[in-house]
Each structure stands twice: as C-alpha cells, then as structure tokens.
C-alpha cells in the first residue's frame, strides 16, 4: 500500500506540470491556445494517419524540410492547416486540395526554436484529424534576415518560376521553385513581404488546389505536390502581399 501511494504520488508529481488539462501527445504548452486559434471549438481527434514528417534536427532553421501526408485518411479532404506552436508567426500554410490532388505536400519552413509542427486535416465528414511531430532546433529561423536582404538579385528576378513534372508509379508529381524573399517582418527594417496565395489550375481554368502561405514558408519556396492524373496541363498562379501576381504553366 505504501508502495502504491508512493508510486501514485511520484506519478502525479511527474505528470502534473506537463500534461495537466492537455490531451496533446506532443505535450506542447500552447496546444490549447493554438487549437482555438486554428480550429476553434470544432470536434477533432489525434490521428496517426495524418503524418507530419520533420528531420530529427533543424540543421538550417531557415530551410527545414517538412512533409504533410494525409493519403491514408478516408474521405475527401477539405482543408489542411499547418502550423508550428512556438513560432512567432505560427501559421505556415493552409492547403485546399481538390479531388485530383493527392494529399501529400512538401516544402521548407523557418523555425524560431524547437517546436511542435502540426497538421489539422478537415474531411468532408466535418471532423478535424490532427497529426504532428516535434522538431528540434537551435533556433533563429524567423528573425534571420533573408539572403535577399543582402543581395539585390531578387529585385530583378522576383516571381521567377521554375517547375518540373516527375512521373510517379501512380499519378505524378510537380515540383516548383519561385524566387521570393518571404520576409517575415520580424527583422529590423525589413518589412513583411511574402507570397500569400498559390492557386493550381487545370487546362480548363478550374482550380485544382489553393494554398494560403504565411511568412514562415522559406525564402525562394520549393513546393512539391502530387496529382492523381499526370497527363493534364496545369498552370499555377501566385500573389504576394505587395499585390504582385505571377502566372506560369507547370
């Protein structure tokens, strides 16, 4: 009995500071607040089928590769919101994939310190499915000046676009890179300047997918996404917060 009590007391002491009033598998101190910010009071569940893949350590905190993979989730996906709990700007991107798009997307992000990186996936059943991973980092990614701040190259190449199609065993993959400083506004005397909207369109002009980006997406974004039908002619349209629009065939 004494032994049990001791264990219970120990257990309580150990668990109290971290897990009190939280069901978060990543034990993030901002979980409840972030959840309210991004999905409000909607119903949700933690779901291993939503995978957020991050490296063990953010070798370069201004260019951390992440992949969000919700392919195992049944039902049509309405929206994917991705954020980092402890970034000064938490929101990274929101993705609205059409049926023709495979819910599997990769890009690089900035992180300011070690943080939970999460994806909340809303299906047409009206419920959020949450996945996430802890990303370890030395930090500083959001308050480091972009390379563009020291090099005027971007001024004459803003919005320049490179893309390539890669056939996959099923469907296909697009990878594109666009020249943009993606300034966070958190560096002294460098205002916020970033691509806000990305729209992928079919040959007939219908929207296949839409993305809303925030400044934690890395400078000169490289974005990789998969499509179910590789033979369609797609194009991409971008707009930054300065009102510059760019359109390009993929």
């Amino acid at each position: 009995m004494i032994r049990h009590c001791l264990f219970m007391t120990l257990g309580l002491i150990l668990s109290m500071p971290v897990t009190a009033s939280s069901d978060d598998p990543l034990n993030s101190p901002l979980w409840n607040y972030m959840r309210e910010q991004f999905i409000g009071t909607d119903s949700y569940q933690f779901d291993d089928r939503v995978r957020v893949v991050v490296p063990e350590f953010a070798e370069d905190p201004t260019q951390v590769p992440i992949t969000v993979d919700a392919r195992e989730l049944a039902g049509q996906i309405e929206r994917i919101i991705v954020w980092a709990d402890l970034n000064p700007i938490q929101h990274i991107f929101t993705y609205y994939p059409h049926q023709a798009i495979v819910p599997h997307i990769s890009l690089r992000i900035k992180v300011q310190q070690g943080t939970a990186v999460r994806a909340a996936v809303l299906t047409d059943k009206g419920r959020w499915h949450l996945g996430g991973s802890y990303l370890d980092a030395a930090g500083g990614g959001c308050t480091t000046p972009s390379a563009a701040a020291a090099d005027p190259y971007w001024e004459s190449h803003l919005g320049e676009f490179q893309s390539r199609f890669f056939p996959r065993s099923e469907g296909g993959r697009y990878k594109f890179r666009v020249i943009h400083p993606m300034d966070t506004g958190l560096v002294n005397a460098i205002p916020e300047f970033y691509i806000e909207q990305v729209v992928i369109r079919s040959a007939s002009g219908n929207d296949l997918a839409r993305m809303e980006l925030s400044p934690p997406v890395s400078e000169n974004p490289v974005i990789t996404f998969d499509v179910r039908e590789p033979d369609k002619k797609h194009s991409i349209w971008l707009r930054d917060n300065g009102g510059n629009e760019f359109e390009q065939a993929l």
Binding site: P65, I66, S106, F166, R168
Partner: peptide
C-alpha cells in the same frame, strides 16, 4: 532527377 523531396531523401 526522380523528383524526391528532401524528406524522402533523408529517409
């Protein structure tokens, strides 16, 4: 050449 993402290469 085959279009892998950084995440896939690391793995």
């Amino acid at each position: 050449r085959s279009g892998l993402t950084m995440t896939e290469v690391i793995a």
